[in-house]
């Protein structure tokens, strides 16, 4: 196997799994093969996908961010509450939520870098902090009545006469493009991979390790807050329970997308494919009607395991040279 092919194998494997799942679903269920179902894959998983873009970059750097689900919940209830109850302008409220998410990420990145703490622990603390904050604001869900929110949540970009992309799906696509550019076209993105691949080398090469690490957690926090806004608009209400365990789904999506969990190797395109796999399984089970939704998780679990083993095998082959 040529090295170039071997390097792309995880991505190709993800694409093959997606194709197999999609074709199987189309053959098994009438109407599955339609633009509407395809468009809904994006709309339904917008929040997960946006958070996964940030998570991808964090994992590139050899880190992990467990706080994203809690940031989603916090953003959702925070924005809904201050807009609906305290009549803050929606744009201002959204900006404040994004600032909170970004600042939390930057703070966690700084703690991880300067105090040499494991990302797992620091972001776990961040998760408790944000989820606790969300519950403190309100445990009741807050329905959206603000006209701007309603307009945004109802707005659609028509594709065909039956299929349309909602606002949140467009935001997801924008984030995927932004994340892809960051990861593959900028110094920042390459520094992330260098940092995840070999931190010692990255330091000796004189790369800005600290700024890169703080930056990537800040970006992940920003993504998570945006995911919270998307989820809130999709569901039409703010809820402090939004995004529970979303960080784990995001990690699964990233790893199924062929990104190495220990860092240094991966592709943003893989995250898109991983997200679509997640979406296809979910939709197929919904189409079937007789299967328990729990099967989504079971299949995702099996796929995750398979991909981790595949990566291990590939790495072992590379190391044996």
């Amino acid at each position: 196997m040529s090295p170039a092919l071997q390097r792309r194998l995880p991505l190709l494997a993800t694409a093959a799994v997606l194709a197999a799942l999609y074709v199987t679903a189309c053959l098994s269920y009438d109407n599955f093969f339609s633009a509407r179902v395809a468009a809904n894959l994006f709309t339904d998983n917008a929040a997960l996908g946006i958070a996964a873009v940030g998570m991808t970059l964090v994992i590139f750097s050899g880190g992990i961010d467990l706080s994203v689900g809690a940031v989603v919940g916090f953003t959702s209830i925070f924005v809904a509450t201050i807009v609906e109850k305290h009549h803050v302008h929606p744009v201002l409220a959204a900006a404040a939520a994004l600032a909170v998410g970004t600042a939390l990420g930057a703070g966690m990145g700084a703690l991880i870098h300067f105090f040499r703490q494991p990302a797992f622990l620091i972001t776990l603390a961040g998760m408790f902090l944000m989820r606790g904050g969300a519950f403190w604001i309100s445990t009741q869900s807050a329905g959206l009545t603000n006209p701007l929110f309603n307009r945004l949540s109802l707005w659609e970009l028509p594709l065909t006469d039956r299929a349309a992309l909602k606002m949140s799906a467009l935001v997801l696509l924008a984030f995927l493009v932004l994340g892809g550019l960051l990861a593959h076209m900028t110094r920042f993105g390459r520094n992330l991979l260098a940092l995840g691949g070999n931190e010692q080398s990255a330091r000796l090469m004189g790369l800005p390790v600290g700024a890169t690490r703080v930056g990537v957690y800040a970006f992940s926090g920003f993504c998570a807050a945006f995911a919270g806004l998307a989820l809130m608009l999709n569901s039409g209400s703010g809820n402090s329970r939004d995004g529970v365990a979303l960080e784990l789904d995001a990690i699964a999506v990233v790893v199924i997308g062929g990104t190495l969990l220990s860092g240094g190797r991966g592709h943003m395109l893989g995250t898109l494919l991983g997200l679509l796999i997640f979406g296809v399984i979910q939709s197929a089970i919904r189409f079937d009607g007789s299967l328990d939704p729990a099967w989504t998780r079971i299949i995702i679990g099996a796929l995750l395991l398979g991909f981790i083993l595949l990566q291990r095998l590939l790495l072992r082959r590379l190391e044996q040279r």
Partner: peptide
Amino acid sequence: NLVASLSVAENLCLGRQPGRLGF
């Protein structure tokens, strides 16, 4: 002291890649 998971070209240029505005 290089990064094994990146390409030869990247390893030669990390930290001083040609380009503008961080791209």
